[in-house]
Write a protein that binds this DNA or RNA. Structure first.
Length: 441
RNA sequence: CGGGAAGUAGCUCAGCCUGGUAGAGCACUACGUUCGGGACGUAGGGGCCGGAGGUUCGAAUCCUCUCUUCCCGACCA
């Protein structure tokens, strides 16, 4: 994409309403603009990041055997009345009346809708287990939206729901998601720790939160240092195998939030205990028959008996992750995107637009990048060098290629990794190889 | 939902106390000089001073109401 044509409104100054670093940088780097409290418009660069995160989440869900559906944003009150949550949910639920006076709502979550579908469509134990997910916009009318997209009222969430015949099977579904979550966060360059959690209003008796570590995180966490050093399960993980061992290893390590951590009774000693700050980016629950029972999600078992389904639900805050990644990865100059979620992998800076050598070399490299299928942003604007460097750093492009009159005389360009200071000179002839190495990853 | 702040140009803010024809920097347009880490000069464009009432000869400024946004706490992907 040519920078001159791109809608990427970067800001030198910080809008006064933004107090935390990810919010400031998202506004300054032209990723989002606030529409009203807790509601955002995603601009091209921000939307690209959001879609990349979404795609990683999707790939890992698919790999773990979940199947994607798309549920409506607007739900009928009926199913919520059946589950009893229509009254319980309170003012956080945005309630709407349609022209016929029917009670509707903007979905804050989808246990009711999906359970209703399953209750209608699945009637035999032979059709189980099932794990259905969707990545859809949710609305929760938070009293106090804040922190930009980290605590918006409207947010993109991956939520899924597992349906099993018995506890053993449900536990396996839970474990699959546990492992898939570890992989999902790792692919985004995040260190995520699972933490045993209260089940809260969703109910149930088995639950983990996934906390991403970031200095600016909203809550303090204490954990065993070993957790930070454990590699996430690899690509080769077999989801049909018994994952209980893996889950046990991870969940047996100490991790607790500020409130629950008791320094006097902490099993982890001295240096092995890490005090950090974190952001909750996922939450998984097993809650048995809490919804299947009121909504009639019942199948017939092998002996002809009626069996109420065992359920779990699993959520990842997709839009929140954009903010969380920035919180975890930035410096004074701007965002430092991990390659896997960067809006563009390469930023090409033509230092002297109008100089025929620089223009020709830049155009050539830009064409090569595009031919290699590498997402590149080409700064072809007639701006000063400083402005271009600052912009690339702010937006957080992982690789910067600088083409300037100084190097071009010797047939060289400069390559810089975002987040590292030194630039290396590379001969233009060799750049092709460098590019193909990039393209392979 | 309790407590606290702020709304003036696209952004950051001054002006308000002590009422008298709306300002600066950045951004934007044109021209010129510059040009390897957010240049400089000259000339421009852009405002119902959040909204509604009130006081006054006169309100960005004083009073009342209202809307919006942000911050701290309780709650949450």
């Amino acid at each position: 994409m040519r920078r001159s044509q791109l809608f990427l409104p970067t800001l030198k100054e910080t809008p006064s309403e933004a107090k935390i670093v990810s919010h400031r940088l998202m506004l300054r780097a032209g990723l989002v603009r606030q529409s009203s409290a807790g509601i955002y418009t995603w601009l091209p660069a921000g939307y690209r990041v959001l879609r990349k995160i979404e795609e990683i989440v999707r790939e890992e869900q698919d790999r773990a055997g979940a199947q994607e559906v798309l549920m409506p944003t607007i739900q009928s009150a009926e199913v919520w009345q059946k589950s009893g949550r229509y009254d319980d949910y309170g003012k956080e639920m945005l309630r709407i009346e349609d022209r016929h006076g029917r009670e509707m709502l903007f979905g804050p979550t989808a246990e009711e809708v999906i359970t209703d579908i399953v209750a209608n469509e699945i009637n035999s134990y032979r059709d189980l287990p099932k794990n259905l997910y969707n990545i859809q916009w949710k609305f929760r009318d938070e009293v106090r939206p804040r922190f930009g997209v980290m605590r918006g009222r409207e947010f993109l969430m991956k939520d899924n729901y597992s349906f099993d015949i018995d506890y053993e099977s449900a536990r396996h579904s839970y474990n699959k998601m546990f492992v898939a979550y570890l992989r999902t966060y790792a692919r985004m360059g995040l260190t995520a720790i699972p933490m045993a959690a209260d089940t809260g209003p969703i109910g149930g008796d088995l639950s983990h939160e996934f906390i991403v570590l970031a200095e600016t995180g909203e809550s303090a966490v204490f954990c065993d240092r070993a957790l930070l050093e454990m590699p996430a399960p690899g690509h080769e993980v077999d989801y049909d195998s018994d994952l209980g061992g893996t889950v046990e290893i991870w969940s047996n390590h100490y991790a607790a939030t500020d409130e629950k951590h008791d320094p006097d009774n902490c099993p982890i000693a001295g240096d092995q205990l890490v005090k950090a700050r974190g952001i909750e980016v996922g939450h998984i629950f097993y809650f048995g028959t809490k919804y299947s029972e009121p909504l009639g999600a019942i199948v017939q078992g092998p002996d002809g008996q009626q069996i109420t389904l065992e359920m779990g639900s699993y959520g990842i805050g997709v839009s929140r992750l954009v903010g969380a990644i920035i919180e975890a990865s930035h410096d004074d100059a701007g965002i430092i995107w991990p390659e896997s979620v960067a809006p563009w992998l390469v930023g090409l800076i033509n230092l002297k637009v109008g100089d025929s050598d620089c223009d020709a070399a830049s155009e050539k490299i830009y064409a090569d990048l595009r031919a290699a299928g590498i997402e590149a942003i080409y700064d072809d604007r007639d701006e000063r060098a400083g402005a271009k460097f600052a912009d690339m750093d702010l937006v957080g492009i992982p690789w910067q290629i600088t083409i300037g009159p100084r190097g071009i005389k010797d047939g060289k360009v400069e390559v810089k990794r975002r987040g590292e200071d030194e630039k290396s000179e590379i001969a233009i002839e060799v750049l092709g190889d460098w590019i193909s190495e990039r393209a392979a990853s």
